[in-house]
Amino acid sequence: MVLYTPLSEVDIFPADQTAYDSTVITTYNQTPVKAFKLENGSYQIVQVLSTDPSIYLHPDYQPGMQFNA
């Protein structure tokens, strides 16, 4: 199938709603983070959304770290 259209791909093939639910934007010690919600109720950091460069070097904020909400 070849589509020749000015529409963007997401307009034609909308993403599955469950894909949006896998990550949430929450705060960890007042720093906004994008996190993956684990089955045990805690969160795993996917991305830090802070403007403070020192946060990115802080061990507690590395992607993959877990924290409790």
Binding site: P53, P59, Q62, G64, M65, Q66
Partner: peptide, 15 residues
């Protein structure tokens, strides 16, 4: 979790 044992620390930044 991180694939490494330690991460560098930075001082508080004014920028």
């Amino acid at each position: 979790q991180l694939g490494q044992s330690n991460v560098a620390q930075a001082p508080d930044s004014n920028i």
